[in-house]
């Protein structure tokens, strides 16, 4: 694995729309779609149709929180069929290097042009806590693998790939987990491994995020990758409190109180999301936002419009 840092070059290397938008210097918007716990693809199709014009790409989560759902690859195809631009999320929790590389080839053959590499939430939190976690490779290794497959046309084992997967490669980072120095080192490692874009954990703690971005910019990583800040409109005070208990999430207490007091919770939730978008937009080095409206994808068009980010390029 010999991939160097993913320098921000002007010309796009894949057929990805997200890549084009970012390399053209636009402030990008991505939206998350959570696949259902059933074999019905209609909801994904509806959501794709709903958010596709308000976002440059749509993330399909991969058995998020280790709960079994319709697979992200099939969900990505539903999005493609409805005119969207899927970002295929791939975790290393459930599949070994054979399955991951194979799924990537399959996804690329179906027209998927973006992939997001994650390790995945630990299976202990999901609905099958007795499952064996795979973790054959980690998210950094998966990122490097995708780049190696794309550019060097080689599988991990070194065998040649005739038709390499042309996908734009992303990874995730959590600005709020542990020492900032460690989190920046870790981001740098993902960039060195080949991550061309980074989607962050949900930002509620704007100050903490600002501090992390300062350190990221001081290290120069913002010049070598596109950073998209995670934004989740809270639906209720309860939802915020629930999120505050998720490992690696920071939710300021005053935000929870603000939601408690609000008479129109949904409006207030959208307003909070809007404020955060405006805030992170002003931070140097931030290239876009990733809106994760969990179980509330319907809120995306309005938030994007209110933020003045509609129409999309």
């Amino acid at each position: 694995m010999s991939i160097g840092p993913a320098a921000k070059v002007i010309e796009a290397r894949t057929g990805s729309r997200l890549e084009k938008v970012l390399r053209a210097g636009h402030f990008a918007v991505t939206a998350e779609i959570g696949p259902p716990k059933g074999a019905d693809g209609r909801r994904i199709q509806q959501l794709a149709a709903l958010v596709k014009d308000y976002s440059d790409a749509q993330n399909l989560t991969d058995n998020q929180t280790a709960v079994v759902r319709l697979c992200s690859l099939a969900a990505a195809v539903h999005v493609l069929n409805n005119g969207g631009e899927p970002v295929l999320q791939m975790t290393t929790r459930d599949r070994n290097r054979i399955a991951l590389q194979s799924d990537l080839l399959g996804a690329a053959s179906l027209g998927v042009r973006n992939v997001l590499c994650l390790s995945g939430d630990h299976q202990r939190f999901g609905n099958h806590p007795e499952a064996k976690g795979v973790f054959d490779i980690d998210s950094v290794q998966l990122t490097a693998t995708v780049r190696q497959m794309r550019e060097e046309r080689l599988f991990i084992c070194g065998e040649e790939i005739k038709a390499p997967p042309r996908v734009f490669v992303g990874a995730v980072e959590n600005p709020f987990a542990g020492p900032v120095e460690l989190r920046v080192l870790r981001l740098g490692k993902k960039v060195m491994a080949g991550a061309e874009f980074i989607q962050t954990q949900v930002v509620y703690d704007v100050e903490g995020f600002t501090r992390w971005m300062e350190a990221v910019c001081a290290a120069g990583w913002h010049k070598k990758t596109f950073i998209l800040a995670g934004v989740t409109p809270p639906k209720s005070a309860g939802a915020l409190r629930y999120m505050s208990r998720i490992p690696g999430m920071k939710v300021p207490e005053e935000l929870i109180r603000r939601m408690e007091k609000a008479s129109d919770k949904l409006r207030e939730g959208q307003r909070i999301a809007l404020e955060i978008i405006n805030h992170v937009r002003a931070i140097a080095g931030v290239s876009g936002v990733h809106i994760m409206a969990i179980n509330w994808e319907e809120a995306v068009p309005e938030i994007v419009s209110m933020a003045g980010l509609y129409p999309r390029p």
Partner: peptide, 9 residues
């Protein structure tokens, strides 16, 4: 093998 995940708090 390459550093912490995002869940360490």
């Amino acid at each position: 093998l390459n550093g912490p995940c995002g869940g360490s708090v």
